[in-house]
Design a protein around this nucleic acid. Structure first.
Lengths: 238, 238
DNA sequence: ACGATTCATCTTACGTCGTAAGAAAGGACC
DNA sequence: GGTCCTTTCTTACGACGTAAGATGAATCGT
């Protein structure tokens, strides 16, 4: 028998999966055509038969993440029709729209935490892939059904969307001990920023998840509740 | 006289200013060592005398933006001492902390709109420059003075910070007519996403600012008010 | 005044990246 | 077997970040 086993053929899906794996394991900067090709045991130029560009590869990565969000938050409800919760059996009472949306946002965040490179990718990409609209459609549907106006639903897309993308990765990390800051620099900072010093002393930074040290789940949920409760005040009011 | 006029010497400041100008005019991708050097009428390697790395140049860009935010929102109050509004003459009544913070957030946003590349740069940068702490210090100071706990102030940093960074650039743009989407694709989309179709019809997209088509000022202010009002409920409550 | 030293800038070169152009290896079909 | 697609690979080019060190200009000790 020949020593060389037949390779499984390439495909856009296989390429995107490999690129996602590389990004997860080695970061976005490691996602080069040559590196992805190596992960697929082929040459870099072979990828161009399935993706036009590197930028299209990156858009495909965004698409992949959105697909995972859809799978996580709208499981099994979307392929039967556009509306998902509104026409299924248990019509949610307009009161608990918040629970529905909160659950979806937390699911989306769960996916983002699996792919910490996603926010910066979305930030650098001009166009959002079409499958994003499915997520928005579900959100708008839920809110319209709960008694919101289209204008408020539109604003909710922006509020919740920027919350999810607004990663705040490491935006505030009081004890950055591993970089080159010396002890006296730390002391000078503590003197210059008394409130931050007091804050660092009073806030317990126990939980560290993968989207930076300070972006803990509880802080995300706090802001999420803030937005959801605020939005609820607009229900049926315009 | 010799024809060659003496060039003004390089400096970190001049380099960062040139890099900012290039980024503003041609986008982040155009910020290469050679391109920045060309803007300064020198060679690429000359930059390395003032910045260690390209990544350090990019960090410097973030620093520049934050400096502009400081100048815009904390004008003249910071160099006299760490606290700014808390010890100045007109002690703001605890009721209008929202106005103070809102004004600062809008000022920060104004700066971000001048540099649309800033969010993606922050998203891709691991460490936030030290001058960011000055912004946070002012926010925490204002909130503590208004009767908030340190924990709530900490959460406010995250809420407002992710709002500001959460740009949502072009995250939702119903009429993307300029790309390759054909008319039948548009029709298919409208059929697949009825709520989004209705939304696109009902929402007037008149104002287009530079951070994408849909991220209008009013949507930003709406979410900002949502967050500020929500935070206000925690004043003195824990 | 003048060699030595330090500072600031430039020259050259290397490895890596995205990717254009087209050759080569299969299969499928006549 | 020959012809034609489909899929993959080879080679090559220009742009990028930057290491190594040369080059000119300023400063200084004596």
């Amino acid at each position: 028998m020949p020593a060389r086993t037949a390779k499984t053929p390439l495909s856009r899906e296989r390429i995107l999966a490999a690129a996602t794996a590389v990004a997860d394991a080695e970061g976005l900067a490691a996602v080069t055509m040559r590196r992805v090709a190596e992960a697929l045991d082929c040459e870099a130029m072979s990828l161009y038969y399935y993706v036009k560009d590197k930028s299209q590869l990156l858009s495909g990565l965004v698409e992949t993440v959105i697909d995972q969000i859809i799978a996580e938050t709208l499981a099994g409800a979307d392929q039967s029709g556009p509306q998902e919760l509104s026409q299924s059996g248990s019509n949610p009472s307009t009161a608990d729209w918040r629970e529905v949306v909160r659950t979806r946002c937390l699911g989306a965040r769960k996916v983002m935490l699996r792919h910490p490179w996603a926010p910066s990718l979305v930030a650098g990409t001009a166009v959002v892939p079409p499958n994003t609209y499915l997520v928005f459609e579900a959100l708008v549907g839920t809110m319209i059904e709960a008694g919101f106006s289209y204008e408020t639903a539109h604003r909710a897309i922006h509020s919740l969307g920027s919350m999810l993308m607004g990663f705040t990765q490491e935006i505030f990390e009081p004890d950055a001990a591993d970089d080159g800051t010396t002890a006296e620099e730390m002391a000078a900072m503590a003197a210059a920023f008394p409130h931050l010093g007091a804050l660092a002393g009073s806030v317990t930074h126990d939980q560290t998840d993968s989207l930076g040290v300070c972006d803990t789940q509880s802080e995300f949920e706090f802001t999420l509740n803030l937005v959801l409760n605020g939005l609820d005040g607009f229900r049926g009011n315009d």
